[in-house]
Amino acid sequence: MNVVVCVKQIPDPADPGALDPDHTLKRDGKLILDESDTYGVEMALQLVDKAGSGEVTLVSMAPNGEVAGLRQALAMGAAKAVLVSDDALAGAGALDTAKVLAAAIGSVGEYDLVLAGVESSDGYTGVVPEQIAALLDLPSIGFAKSVDIADGTLKVQRQTEAGYDEVEAPLPAVVSVTAGVVEPRYPSFKGIMAAKSKPVDTKTVADLGIDASAVGWAGAGQEIVDVAAAPEREAGEKIVDEGDAHEKIVAYLDGLKVL
């Protein structure tokens, strides 16, 4: 069982976000592994463990040859990584990202399953995994809240508006997993040390056979025309509870005629 996991490296969400003057997300600080993708990594490790053979390969697209987030996932137990880093990718939209990741996955060799997160913490377009599946011409199951593989068949519980669907697909396939689907492990000290020497294959778009003028600002097919602060909501009255706050709330609700 060989599993490829798409992992995004993002600025620490604890730091306030900022845009560069060209309207791309500022990414000059250190990048970290997106928490949304730790679930895919953990799921992949568990599936390979259960199968008894195979390995987990990471695929990531990030600027400036960034590997800090990849090292975190390698420390969890992934075997190796492919990083696509290229200045031509600045301004890449979801479709560009998917094209690059699909090509990178294609460069990995034989695989049974591709895992991704349902949505990234900073971009949250939520369309990249399904686009990757379309580019690779594979079946895909999104919003997985459980993943199981038996006799070469993939079984997934897919979150729906009403509850969940039990869905089955042949392998290889693409699956996006929800937060909380598994409990991501903390890297051990041994894992962290081992990660330092695990192979990370860094590629440019040209290495993947992608035309640089078809991706990034040049190829995104979309143009940012404005960035503005969202309208602020005004705060109203604030009181300290002296044992009678419930009466205030009842009076307020009465005033709105909702009781």
Partner: peptide
Amino acid sequence: GTTYDGRDIAARLSVKIDKPVISN
């Protein structure tokens, strides 16, 4: 709409006709 199926269909369509999709 940003729904489970809406996202999946929009993503597949965007690849099939090679046009960007803007979410959210």
